[in-house]
C-alpha cells in the first residue's frame, strides 16, 4: 500500500478517535451534572416532606406567630412548584426565602420554652438543619459540575462537538439576592 495513503488513513483515524473521545467526555459530563442535580432533588423532597410536620408542631405552641408559619409554608410551596417546573432561577429565589423564613421561625421559637422543650420540635429542627447543610454541600457540588460542563462546551475544540450534537449548558443554582446581600447590622440596633 502507498505510504502516503497509510499516513493519511492514520491521521484520519487519529482525528476520528479524538472526536469520539471528546464526545464521550461531554456525555459523561452531562450525565454527571444531571446526577449532581438529582442528588439535591432527593434532599429537597425530603426537607419539603418534613416542613409541614414542623409547622404543625409549632402551631400547637405558637398561636401568635401565624404570619411566620405561613411564610414558611408559602416558601415551601414555591420551592415545590419551582422543582416541578425545573426553573432554577425561581428555585434559587424560593430557597433563599425559605431559609430566611426558617431562620425567623427558629429565632421566634426561642420565645416559647414549651416548644423548645418538645421532643418532636427538637427532632424536626435537627433533621431539617441537617438536611439544609447537606443541600448546601450538594448545591456546591452541583455548581462545580455545571461550571465544568459549561466551560468545556464553550472551549475550542469541544465547542465544535458540543454545537454539532446540541450539548446545552446547565444553569447554576444561586442564592437569591436578599440572602447574599450584606447584612445592615446598624439598622437592627437603630430600629
Amino acid at each position: 500500500m502507498n505510504t502516503g495513503l497509510i499516513i493519511f488513513l492514520s491521521l484520519l483515524g487519529g482525528l476520528v478517535l479524538w472526536a469520539i473521545l471528546l464526545y464521550n467526555q461531554l456525555v459523561a459530563l452531562k450525565n454527571n451534572t444531571a446526577k449532581a442535580w438529582s442528588n439535591i432533588d432527593v434532599l429537597l423532597k425530603q426537607r419539603n416532606a418534613e416542613l409541614p410536620k414542623l409547622v404543625a408542631v409549632c402551631k400547637e405552641h405558637m398561636q401568635y406567630e401565624q404570619a411566620t408559619l405561613q411564610k414558611v409554608m408559602e416558601a415551601r410551596n414555591r420551592v415545590a412548584s419551582a422543582m416541578q417546573s425545573g426553573d432554577m432561577g425561581a428555585l434559587g429565589a424560593a430557597e433563599g426565602a425559605l431559609r430566611i423564613g426558617l431562620g425567623n421561625l427558629f429565632a421566634v421559637a426561642e420565645a416559647y420554652p414549651e416548644l423548645k422543650a418538645s421532643d418532636s420540635f427538637r427532632h424536626l429542627r435537627e433533621r431539617i438543619t441537617g438536611l439544609e447543610d447537606s443541600i448546601a454541600d450538594r448545591r456546591e457540588f452541583y455548581n462545580d459540575s455545571a461550571a465544568i460542563n459549561n466551560t468545556r462546551i464553550e472551549q475550542f475544540p469541544d465547542v465544535v462537538i458540543a454545537k454539532a450534537f446540541s450539548f446545552k449548558p446547565f444553569r447554576l443554582m444561586s442564592f437569591s439576592a436578599e440572602e447574599t446581600s450584606d447584612v445592615d447590622v446598624a439598622a437592627h440596633f437603630t430600629a
Binding site: 459530563l29 446526577k35 447537606s134 454541600d137 457540588f141 465544568i148 468545556r152
Partner: peptide
C-alpha cells in the same frame, strides 16, 4: 473535570 465531593453531603455518583 470531576469536582471534589465531601462525605458529609454524601453526593452519590
Amino acid at each position: 473535570d470531576t469536582p471534589t465531593s465531601t462525605l458529609s453531603s454524601g453526593a452519590q455518583g
